[in-house]
Amino acid sequence: MSTLLEVKNLKKHFPINNGGLLKKQNGAVKAVDGISFQVKQGETLGLVGESGCGKSTAGRAILKLLEPTEGEIRFKGEDITGYRGEKLRKLRRDMQLIFQDPYASLNPRKTIEQIITEPMKIFNLPKQQRKKKLDRLLDVVGLSSYHKQRYPHEFSGGQRQRIGIARSLALDPDLVICDEPVSALDVSIQAQVINLMEDLQQEFNLTYIFIAHDLSVVHHISDRVAVMYLGQIVEIGEVEELYSHPKHPYTQALLSAIPEADPELSRERILIKGDLPSPSDPPLGCKFHTRCPYAEEICRTSNPLLKQVSSGGQQAACHFVKEVALEH
């Protein structure tokens, strides 16, 4: 499998201006602070982390919906970081986004037909072809052709999400970034949409970056998982390996919080104390040290880098990977 997407040291900082006339910059919110990873053709990379850790920002920066502050994005071997204007527009055919909120992501003034065919119109597909494609897309996402003339508000959340999925597939993209595509849906509908997404991946040979905070959903759909904390990746690896042998204390804490449907099972919950520190003023050293049960002096001064922790390619960013893993 070839590498489809490669992200190197990607940063997205949002400047904080004090409201004055001169717009003096007062520091920055470091939403994404140097993440690197690769995504192979046809795989699903899960991106997990708590709210505000920068996962959505990372997704949008990769799609260049947000201008990255620093770093490099290579797509199909090409450096797309500096793409602008027409070149960037052409790139949109190959990279698409599925939104979190199916209620906000569809234009309420357009019919389903208009919504799904718009990308094809923008890229000048002939009318006949648009029609055929529309019918096929409606079919694969499980909507009927009489839905075409309706408006988004006439649909349920699950149906709307499927409309959004059909729109993002209209241009036959290679990479689809799914920004919490099921977190706004009921649990029963979540399964439907997830299964649909898996079928579509098979059928259209899609590569997914699946952003979510629901660890069980990520476990189900992902091939590899990256765990983010305060704008950085703290652990990344194959899904089974990472879920069974988490090496970073943050990953361990996250995984121990997944509820299990077995009342007999007694487990040790790893509780992390306190709140997520502000991304505008992140702690020095290891960003997790303020909440880490194992933190020592070195964690307060030096930020650990991702390093190989297993033969399977799992990487974690912790000074005490070995000790922590043993203790677990």
Binding site: R93, Q96, L97, F99, A104, L106, I122
Partner: peptide
């Protein structure tokens, strides 16, 4: 600032559109 405008940008719509 709504998501459907971001969606329009994501499918490659130009500013005029």
């Amino acid at each position: 600032e709504t998501e459907y405008i971001e969606a329009a940008r994501a499918i490659g719509a130009k500013n005029n559109r």
